[in-house]
Design a protein around this nucleic acid. Sequence first.
DNA 1: CTGAAAGCGCTTACAG
DNA 2: CTGAAAGCGCTTACAG
Lengths: 353, 353
Amino acid sequence: MKSRKATSHEVARLAGVSQSTVSRAFNRESAVSEETLKRIRAAANKLGYWPNELARSLISRRSNMVGIVMGDILNPFYPAVLAAFTQKLQALGRRILLFSVAPGADIDDVLPQMLQYQVSGVVITSATLSSRMARTISASATPVVLFNRSIYGHPVNSVCCANEDGARDVARLLCEAGHVRFGLVGGHADTSTHIERRQAFVEELRRHGICGVVEHSGGNTYEGGRTAARLLLDAAQRPTALFCISDIMALGALDATRYDLKLSVPDDVSIVGFDDIPAAAWPSYQLTTVQQPVDKMVDQAIALLERQIKDTAAPPSQLHIPGTIIVRTSARLGPQPTHAASRPSGERGRKRG
Amino acid sequence: MKSRKATSHEVARLAGVSQSTVSRAFNRESAVSEETLKRIRAAANKLGYWPNELARSLISRRSNMVGIVMGDILNPFYPAVLAAFTQKLQALGRRILLFSVAPGADIDDVLPQMLQYQVSGVVITSATLSSRMARTISASATPVVLFNRSIYGHPVNSVCCANEDGARDVARLLCEAGHVRFGLVGGHADTSTHIERRQAFVEELRRHGICGVVEHSGGNTYEGGRTAARLLLDAAQRPTALFCISDIMALGALDATRYDLKLSVPDDVSIVGFDDIPAAAWPSYQLTTVQQPVDKMVDQAIALLERQIKDTAAPPSQLHIPGTIIVRTSARLGPQPTHAASRPSGERGRKRG
DNA sequence: CTGAAAGCGCTTACAG
DNA sequence: CTGAAAGCGCTTACAG
C-alpha cells in the first residue's frame, strides 16, 4: 500500500544479476541471454517494477514527450484535432504534455514550461506565437510545428488548410448564384486563419465586381456568430449571403437568421461556414462549408515534427492542404455541375472541387 | 541555433559561484544574497538557462505532473471538462500528461505509462478501470480520482453528478405530465453513468406504476442516438417520451424525431437529455436536460486529488454533486411551479429543483 | 550566505 | 553475455 516504487537495483538483487543487465533487459532484450531475461522478468513482475522514465529521459537526453498547446478547445473543431494528435502520437510511442491558453492569448508563458520538461517537440494549435517566442524556440533548437496558424518571416514548420483557395471558392460560388450583398463574420483579427480567409474572400468578390462587404467579428464562438449575424442582417440593405470564418459561428448565424430574425435559410439568406464540424451535417443545420482535412493535416504536422526531431537541421516547411467544399442546403450557390460526386457516406452533402 | 541547453554548472561558472548556489537561486531565492542573486540572474539570462525539470523531478521525487485519461473527447460534454482541468491544474503549477483511450476501452495499457513518468496523481475521465488496474494503482500508491465514473468495491476517489437524483427527477416530471409509454436511449452498458441513470429512471417509473420501458443503446454518439430513436419510435405503441442518457444522443434523437420520422417535439414526442452541453441551449434544439455542474465537479476532483497527494493515507471519498434540471421546450413535463426561477443569463431555460 | 558532496534511477561505453 | 563505473542535471542535508 505504501510501497515505494521498486528500482532496477532491487530487481537486480532479486534476480541475482547486475543493475546494468536489468537495464539492458528493458532496452535491448536481444543483448541478454534467454535464461537471464526470464529471471529478470520474474523479479520485475514480483516487485511491480517499471523503468523510471524520468531517469531514463535524463540520461538519454530524450524525453519522448511532445508538448501540445491548445488555443481553443471549446471550438467544436478542435476536439477532433486533439483526438487525432493524441492517438497518432501515442501510437508513435510519444507522450503528450498538454497546455491550454485562452483563445487569442499568446503562448509566451507556457513555452518555457514545456522547454523545461525537455520536450522532444512542440505542437502549437490555434494560438499566437510572438516573434520573441519564435526566437526563443529557435534558440532552444526544439522542433516546432504550428497547426492552423502560420507566421510570417520566421522559419517555422506549419500546416494549414488552404484557406485562400477555400474562401475563394466560396466567394465564386456565391457570386455565380447572383448574390451581390455580402456579410462576413470574422474571427480574431490577428490570426492567420482569419486574415487569409477574409482576404481571399474579399478579393474574389472584387474580381466579380463586388466591392462592399459588411463585416463583424464573431470571436469564434456560437454566441459571437449569432450576435454578429443579427447586426449584419439588421441593415436596411440586408446581405443575402453570409460567409462565416468558422462553422461554430455559422451555426450561431444560422440560428440568428431563423429564430431571431425569422428569416429563411437559404431563401432569404445564404450561410456558408468553414471547418465542417460534426454539427454542420446535422439536419437542423445542413451547413454548406469548407471541410478541413483534419486527419491529413495532423499526419503532415506529425511528419514535419518527427522529421525535425530526427534532423534538427531539416528546413522548415509551410504546408497548405486543400479543403473541400461540402454543399449542403444552407446556401444558394451557383449552378451545380451534374457530375458532382455525392458523398460516400450517403450523407446529403456533396463535395465540390 | 544548435546550442545545447545551458546547465546550472555553466551558469555557476559565468556568475563565479558554485552550482549549489545557482540551484538555490531558482528554488528559495531568500537563501541567496541579493548581490549574488543578481549575478546569477544575469548569467542565467545570458545563457538562456532554465532548470531542467526532469532532473529536478528525479532528485526531489515529485514530478509535478498530473496524468489525465480522457475517454471520450468527441462527446461535446468533455471539452469543457478538459478545459476546466487544464486551466485549474495549470494554475496550481501542475503539468498535464494527457492520454486518450477509445470510448469503452479500459485503461490498462496507459496506466503503466503514466506511472513510469512518476505522475503525482491521475485523473480518469469517462473510462473503465479494471479491478486489476485498481489494484495496480493502490499498489503504486499514486493518488487517483475518477471523474464521472465510480467503481464498486474499491477505495478510489470519485466525483460524479448525482446521477440517480437527476434521472429520478426526469422520470417524475414526465410521469406527472401524463406520459405512460417511455423509451430510453442508453450509453455503454458497463459504465456507472449509464447504470445509475438508467436504474433510477426505471425505478421511479415503477413507483408511478409504469413497468415497461423500451430501451436501445445509442453508444453515446449523435448518430447512435439518432438510430436508437428511429428504432424506438417506429414501434406500433410509440413512446411519447424519450430519456437519453447523454445530450449528444438526445440531439440525435431529436433530429430523428423531427426529420426522419416527421414527428413534432414535444407535441408527439418529449425528449430529455443529460449533461447540458452548449448545443442543448441552441434554439434549434432547446433541449430539456439535467445540467452537470462541471466547474464544481472539477474543483472537487482536484481537491480530492491534491488532498491525497499531500497525504497518501487520506481516505478516498465518493462525491455526488447535485445536478439541475434545465427546463427548455423539448419535453412536455408536469405542471410548472409558478415560482420557478428563471435563469440568470436571460436564456430561455428554467432551472428546477 | 556559500560550497563540497552525495545521490535520484537510470543508460551506455568499456572491459572482460 | 555480463559487470563496474561514469555521468545525465539537478536538490539538499551538512559544514563552515
